[in-house]
């Protein structure tokens, strides 16, 4: 791999794109549930599975999931990773400190919910560890209301 002999003029395109995403009725109801400290899943009329967060379609059954159900706030940690970095606009930056992300199977659901996990050391982390949802003190009906999970 020899070094290229020439250099090219490198224009920078500083355009910031703004998008207005409609989240749709399912995420809207999911977030509204947050205001009452409720976690809503949707239930497939075909296979009966419950997925969190609530969404419209069950892919394998190709069925609309019309029914929204409240699910347990406790569950088991099924998978986890310790973040040492964060990604900001595609750039890797060091995190303030290591933090745990977990995939959590809330009781009675058939999906895994990604969330921050606190109060669990790497050594103590293992699949099946019981955890519960911890809410922010002030609820805004926002994605961040469900703050993290911690051991039961």
């Amino acid at each position: 791999m020899e070094a290229p002999a020439e250099n090219f003029f490198t224009p920078v395109v500083p355009l910031d794109f703004v998008y207005n995403y409609r989240v749709g009725p399912y995420i809207e109801r999911y977030l509204r549930g947050f205001k009452d400290k409720k976690i809503l899943g949707s239930k497939c009329p075909g296979c009966g599975k419950v997925v969190v967060p609530a969404r419209m379609y069950c892919g394998p059954c190709n069925r609309r999931m019309e029914e929204l159900v409240e699910v347990s706030q406790e569950g088991s940690l099924e998978n986890y990773t310790i973040g040492h970095v964060i990604l900001e606009k595609g750039a890797i930056k060091p995190a303030k400190g290591p933090y745990m992300l977990g995939l959590i199977n809330l009781d009675g659901t058939d999906s895994l919910l990604l969330g921050r996990v606190e109060g669990v050391s790497v050594a103590a982390a293992k699949p099946g560890l019981r955890v519960k949802a911890v809410w922010k003190e002030e609820l805004d009906g926002d994605f961040k209301d469900l703050d993290h999970f911690e051991p039961v």
């Binding site: 995403y21 409609r22 989240v23 379609y57």
Partner: peptide, 12 residues
């Protein structure tokens, strides 16, 4: 403007 659905829902 389809305000009532998101992208994936609209396609479905």
């Amino acid at each position: 403007k389809r305000k009532d659905v998101n992208i994936a829902e609209m396609i479905s």
